[in-house]
Design a protein around this nucleic acid. Structure first.
Length: 272
DNA sequence: ATGGTGGATTTTCCA
């Protein structure tokens, strides 16, 4: 089973890259961020032709998230339940088989100390509350998306230049650690200990050509999903070439789900 | 310190 996350930086502008990528990889679930379009403007037709079901939660110009899946999604939730401020469409959640997937586009925050930065920390606190509630209901859970936060200096091409800057500051990293503190594991780091692997490269500095980037797109998984995980990789080919997004897709490979009867048998027959 | 590029919508905002 293959699950992907990709900040596409406008789903309509990225369609010429997204469609052949879907045809080649055929991920079972794709978590998209930064749609930059309303749901009625989402290019559903060509994606449905490839066999994908679509759950989108978009708005004009900014933000927007979607879940594409080969199998139909169940129990979707758009945004945070009961959130009075639904002006920014940044999170969508659904169940696929026995897996609960939360797809988030975390607030960027612009600059440490500004109003947007405080909004980022406030939003992350709401995300944590939502994830905790979902975990109590769905133990097999994946939280993925564009977190706009590096875990540590291994995720940064020039740690000294980025010290306490946006995407790298101590309060942001503490908020990220608060999420993993719920019992979630950074799956990329679980499989790859070394630094130098990045998922975002700045257009402005021609970061991709210079291999200077940050790792800010993550898969955080609960224990049962960690046990079923095979590998996480960053698809740099999709970041290269004509009209790419500034983010590369990140891919999680899971062991195939066991049959319900098989699971039941294992649980009962494992005990001597 | 600034600007560089890219997308959507517009003469600027956000990343």
């Amino acid at each position: 089973m293959l699950i992907a996350t990709w900040n596409v930086n406008s789903v309509r502008a990225r369609l010429p890259r997204l469609l052949p990528w879907l045809e080649t990889l055929r991920p079972d679930v794709v978590c998209l961020q930064e749609l930059k379009c309303r749901d009625e403007d989402f290019p559903a037709g060509p994606l449905e032709e490839l066999g994908y079901n679509i759950l989108s939660y978009g708005q004009k110009t900014y933000n927007g998230v979607a879940l594409l899946s080969l199998e139909r999604a169940e129990d979707p939730i758009r945004g945070f339940p009961g959130d009075p401020d639904a002006s920014q469409k940044r999170v969508i959640t659904a169940t696929f088989g026995d897996l609960r997937i939360l797809n988030a586009y975390v607030v960027n925050g612009r600059e440490v100390g500004c109003a947007a930065y405080q909004h980022k920390l406030d939003w992350l606190a709401k995300l944590r509350e939502f994830v905790a509630a979902q975990l109590s209901e769905y133990p097999r859970l994946v939280l993925t998306g564009d977190f706009n936060i590096t875990f540590d200096d291994r995720d940064v091409y020039d740690p000294e230049a980025w010290r306490e800057k946006i995407l790298c500051s101590t309060p942001e990293r503490a908020a990220l650690a608060d999420l993993t503190g719920l019992g979630l594991t950074d799956l990329f780091r679980y499989f790859h200990d070394e630094g130098g692997h990045y998922s975002w490269f700045d257009f402005r500095t021609r970061g991709f050509q210079r291999k200077l980037g940050l790792r800010i797109d993550h898969f955080l998984a609960s224990g049962p999903v960690l046990e079923a995980s095979r590998d996480v990789r960053i698809d740099l080919v999709a970041r290269d070439g004509e009209k790419p997004s500034d983010h590369a897709p990140v891919l999680l490979e899971l062991l195939e789900q066991s049959e319900p009867s098989e699971r039941g048998m294992t649980a009962e027959t494992d005990t001597p």
